[in-house]
Every structure is written in C-alpha cells, then in structure tokens.
C-alpha cells in the first residue's frame, strides 16, 4: 500500500479541565476508508477526545493535522466545513420534519422565484436525498416524518446526512446503542459501506462484537492515556478488555 499522509493526525494532544488531566499525550492517526474503534471505560477520555476532533473542545496542548496541514478546530461549524461530521448518540434530528428535509437541514437547496426570492427547492432536495440513500443502499421513505421512524432508520438518516455532505471523517458515538436487534446488522453494514466509499470512521462504542465485525483498527484509552493500539486482527478481546481496565500492558 502506498504511503500517504493520514487523513487526520493528532500529535501529543492533551486536555486539562482545571487540575484534572482528561487527556495526556495522545497520538492518533486515521486514514480514509478506515474504521477506527475508540474504546475505553467511562471517564477514560473518549468523549473528550471526540469533542476535540469535532471542534467542540479546544485541546490544551498538542497539534492536529488534517490531510497533512495543521488545523486548529475551535468551532463545530469549522470542523463541519473541513468535512468532519459527528453523529451523536442522541441522534439529534428534527422529529417533526421529513427525511429529505433532515438530510438537507441547515444547507438547503434554494431556487429563486421572480429572480430574487429564495424558495426551498423541495423536489430537487428529495431527488438528491433519494440518490444519496441509494448510494448507501438505505431504504427510507423520504416524505415520512423522522419522528415516525425506528431508531435504526433515524441512525440511517444521520449517516446519510453525513455521507451526502461528503464528510471525510465521520465520528459515531455508540451508533448501535439505541437500536433493536433486527436493525443492528444493517447499521454495521452501513458503517462498512461508508468506509468503503472512502470515508474515515471513528467508532466510539462499548459493544465488543461490533468492533471485531467492522473496525480495522482499535485504540483503547484508559485514564486519559492511550493504553493499547493495534489492528483488529492482531488483538484479542481479552487484551483489549484488560487494557480498558488496567491501562498499558507494561504498567500492569
């Protein structure tokens, strides 16, 4: 495989909240098409790290590089513009609006009536939403109000939204937590499709089987430090769980 700059590289990232070291010396790389599982016990620093990447928190120290160039993300909107999309566990979607409208929310297509009045181009947005869903092999009723969809379908809406906007990096926080057994497989499949289309995916999860099914690489955080990193195929569940509980293997 040819060497190229990873899509996202973190060097020595640290974060303090007052006297608390939430993160210490984190180095991390992720390339396009990869699914990186970010594991760790509660309070290990996963969500802090994810928020730094998503631009919701500024790191206290360290550097971030996106496609080789240094970035300082201090604003979710900026992260957005750089192609970083975060799908939060609470799946924030507007329940009272339909699928197509949610996919385009905040970035609507408009046409001009009488040459100056900007009017929503609903038909165009529906058409494009349909083709975006088709590319990811998602079947959803576009005119259906999202509040009437199942948890898995909502997750699919959120993923389609990120994919449509040509995210380069999608961060998913517990994507299968709120989903029934029947839809679990479909969401995992969707994550794989997303990665196959060239998107880098960071998967934050507690569900071990998911990790071995879709992730290409695993990073374990323990008490704010990177405790273990490796290719999924080279790690056992036992080693990962031990790292989550006791930290770095040399420390144990």
């Amino acid at each position: 495989m040819p060497e190229k700059a990873p899509l996202l590289e973190l060097r020595n990232i640290g974060k303090r909240f007052g006297a608390v070291h939430a993160l210490r010396g984190i180095d991390l790389q992720i390339s396009s098409g990869e699914v990186l599982a970010l594991l760790g016990d509660n309070g290990a620093g996963k969500s802090t790290l994810v928020k730094i990447i998503a631009g919701a928190h500024a790191p206290s120290s360290g550097e971030m590089f996106l496609a080789g160039s240094k970035v300082s993300l201090f604003d979710p909107r900026l992260a957005h513009d750089l192609g970083i999309e975060t799908i939060y566990q609470d799946l924030a979607v507007a329940e009272n609006l339909d699928v197509a409208t949610n996919i385009f929310l905040g970035r609507e297509r408009k046409s001009r009536v009488l040459g100056f009045l900007p009017v929503l181009a609903r038909r165009e947005m529906r058409r494009e939403a349909a083709s975006a869903l088709e590319r990811l092999a998602i079947e959803l009723p576009l005119r259906q109000v999202v509040g009437e969809l199942s948890g898995g379908q909502r997750q699919a809406v959120a993923i389609a939204r990120a994919a449509y906007w040509q995210a380069r990096l999608v961060i998913m926080d517990e994507p299968t937590a709120a989903i029934g057994v029947g839809e679990h497989e479909a969401i995992l499949k969707l994550i794989q499709n997303l990665a196959r289309s060239g998107v880098a995916v960071i998967l934050v999860t507690h569900t071990m089987p998911d990790v071995w099914q879709v992730a290409t690489r695993i990073v374990v955080l323990t008490r704010g430090e990177k405790a273990l990193e490796g290719k999924t195929g080279e790690l056992t569940e036992e080693r990962v769980v031990r790292a989550m509980l006791v930290g770095r293997e040399s420390d144990a």
């Binding site: 909107r77 507007a94 009272n96 609006l97 905040g106 929503l120």
Partner: peptide, 17 residues
C-alpha cells in the same frame, strides 16, 4: 422551515448550523 426545525429539536437545529 428552520422555525419548525428549532421547535422540533433545538439541538439538532443548532448542530445543523
């Protein structure tokens, strides 16, 4: 439409920009 989005889910509306 954004008025409806805000009323439907303020957090989602905010995150959507």
């Amino acid at each position: 439409m954004h008025l409806y989005a805000i009323g439907g889910n303020r957090v989602a509306a905010y995150r959507a920009g």
